[in-house]
Design a protein around this nucleic acid. Structure first.
Lengths: 161, 161
DNA sequence: CCTGAAAGATGATGGTT
DNA sequence: AACCATCATCTTTCAGG
């Protein structure tokens, strides 16, 4: 579970330029390219770096509608079916468990309100145990980044020089 | 504004394997590597692919707390200061405009409740024009992907074979 | 973690339909 | 106009230190 200063810098860099070459990073961090490659490989092996992804503009691929759906389940035994639906439904980008015993918050992306209606009114509300769902439509997105706050937030545990 | 079938396949692939080589993609799509590289380059040039990013496990870098904060502003003239704060604050990963005239939804990541308190009670509520803020703490995350739903959702406009 | 060499990927050029 | 093939250059990878 140790992440030193160098790992941190590698992570920060790869979060904003995930396709940069090891050589670039190497010159930036003043170490050799194989060292960077090895560290990046190990970070991924340890699950700290989970993967690399192209960041795509949703509107460019027809996904103009973004919404948050707060869902309330009545009983724990209905969770399984709900969670299975969440996993297999691509329009659901995120699902967070938020409250006492049956509240979830979904981030949903689709083309238009017709798609959203199909998703919420037909699919979601058709599941067992859905007590209530409140949908909040996003009018515009001011900021949306996958970069995690790291500068002063994650103090290094090892500072091996 | 045209995205054909090939572009779609490239996008889908790069969303789940953003560091794959052009050669790999080329053999997968049955075309040459330079063709893939050229298309990927143009997709990025057109802003459809906005960049590439390493996906990092937040908990591995000490970010164990995730929260959503719903903010209400009183007047439009206070928006500017608020939005500036949002942009410069790394802990705010997302900011969506959601309602009538002054409602925003923030996705906030930090280490613990102390950090969250500093962020919401000291920084956010210290801004001009903040009427109300309701914080929802996430207990656990069931699903969180940056992959956009594309399979049947974005029908190709050109299907040049 | 570094150096060096082999294997591979990228990027540019010219040619093809 | 888009794609393919080839070659020069750069990067990655693997050896050994």
């Amino acid at each position: 579970m140790g992440i030193d200063t160098l790992d941190c810098k590698i992570i920060v860099q790869l979060m904003s330029n995930g396709r940069g070459t090891w050589s670039e990073l190497a010159t930036l961090l003043q170490i050799s390219a194989p060292a960077v490659a090895e560290r990046a490989r190990r970070l991924q092996e340890r699950g700290i770096i989970q993967g690399y992804a192209a960041q795509v503009d949703p509107r460019a691929v027809g996904l103009t509608l973004l919404a948050y759906v707060a869902v309330t389940l009545d009983r724990p035994e209905h969770r399984v079916g709900f969670l299975a639906w969440v996993q297999q439904t691509d329009a659901v980008q995120e699902c967070h468990h938020i409250a006492g015993d049956g509240d979830y918050l979904l981030k949903v992306r689709c083309r238009d309100t017709a798609d959203l209606e199909e998703l919420v009114s037909n699919q979601l509300k058709g599941l067992e145990g859905i007590v209530r769902s409140r949908t909040t439509i996003v009018l515009s997105t001011v900021k949306e980044t996958s970069r995690l706050p790291m500068p002063a937030d994650a103090p290094e545990r090892n500072s091996a020089n």
